[in-house]
Design a protein around this nucleic acid. Structure first.
Lengths: 123, 123
DNA sequence: TTATTATATAATAATATCCTTATATTGTGA
DNA sequence: TCACAATATAAGGATATTATTATATAATAA
């Protein structure tokens, strides 16, 4: 799930989406992105790092320059995995053990805050 | 593009992803989510609002209760639209006019900051 | 009407994100 | 080596997000 969060967080920012869209035209150097986007170089570098760390971009160093490109069809794959994640039997998902158990225990009284536990206190 | 940002931002948060995953088992009342997730009610309500405003969830009021459910296959549709957005001819995208023009003007000197403009200043 | 249930909203503090300015790093050519 | 080009990183302030606590709203039942 952490990967989903990371990727969606990376995509959920307008400047990064613009960078992605530009790089989907063709791979570019940072300095080219700077010309195209007309925003500051550190700002671009920082966003590129987030996208790279999410696995969405790859980089290729060429002398002083760095070439950035979309990382294959990773976005499609993550999207597919996410749809699958939503459709999967929740009992099979790691990290949802407690939730699965609590869903199984949901009964019609689940929403009644009143004296549910008072009587079971025994005396 | 704003819609993409809104949806990805909504998905890019662990608690909201958990809520989504739980609601993909079946629609639930807020109080049921509270039992299942074991987190505070305001926290759940606030996340539900974000998801609803992104269009990912729908709600149905039933007396005092509110029933929340996944909004059909909107996620799949947004994902599909986004892949299409990335593949589209950038010249056809609203909001990318300037970038399109600047890409067209990129030349081999695009990365040379030096005296590009000095000579053209005329004298 | 009054109390209670279910939910939403408001206010606040803690944390995270984003952008800018400044500086560091690394490679290249003079 | 020295200067510079290209990029990355660091530090700072401004803003946004998240979670908590407290309160408001709205429906229902007594």
């Amino acid at each position: 799930m952490d990967l989903f969060v990371k990727v969606f967080k990376a995509l959920g920012e307008p400047t990064r989406l613009k960078i992605l869209r530009i790089l989907s035209v063709r791979p570019m150097y940072v300095c080219e992105l700077e010309s195209v986007l007309n925003i500051s170089q550190p700002r671009i570098s920082q966003h590129l790092r987030v996208l790279k760390e999410a696995g969405v971009l790859r980089e290729a160093k060429e002398a002083q320059k760095t070439f950035y490109m979309l990382n294959g069809d990773i976005i499609e794959r993550v999207f597919g995995d996410f749809i699958q994640f939503l459709g999967e039997d929740i009992g099979k998902l790691p990290g949802f053990e407690k939730e699965t158990a609590r869903i199984a225990n949901l009964d019609s009284d689940s929403c009644v805050q009143s004296c549910k536990n008072v009587n079971s206190a025994g005396s």
